[in-house]
């Protein structure tokens, strides 16, 4: 008989595969905070900027939403993760700032330190 633990291990492997197939192993992963508080602060519009950028041909970027990490006064937050580098978290991101993050950070690899937390 297959035990529950075996089932769960198989399910986990499948889940990881599905995440990877969605591009998780891209060079850059971008997370936009999307809890009630973040949405109230305007994160939906920020998310839309990144979605549009990917629709318009930005490649090698994995975009996902996340819950609230607790940085209330700095919301909306956007996190940019690259393997082997210190993660960069941007606070109080507006659609304009998001567009600039796309242009400068995601496309040219420049960390915009003055907006980072």
């Amino acid at each position: 008989m297959v035990t529950p633990l075996e089932i769960i291990r198989k399910k986990r492997a499948e889940a990881v595969n599905r995440i990877v197939s969605k591009g998780y192993l891209s060079t850059i992963r971008v997370y936009v905070g999307m809890a009630t508080c973040e949405i109230a602060a305007g994160s939906k519009e920020v998310m839309e900027v990144f979605r549009q950028a990917i629709a318009n041909g930005l490649t090698d970027v994995y975009l996902s939403q996340k819950g609230c990490a607790g940085r209330c006064n700095l919301e909306p937050t956007v996190e940019v993760i690259e393997e082997g580098k210190i993660p960069v978290k941007y606070g109080r991101v507006t659609p304009e700032k998001a567009r600039e993050i796309v242009e400068r950070h995601l496309k040219k690899g420049e960390v915009i330190t003055e907006w980072a937390i």
Binding site: V16, G33, Q65
Partner: peptide, 10 residues
């Protein structure tokens, strides 16, 4: 919280 996508069980 703030690490995974809460709407995706994967």
């Amino acid at each position: 919280c703030g690490v995974i996508d809460p709407e995706n069980i994967d």
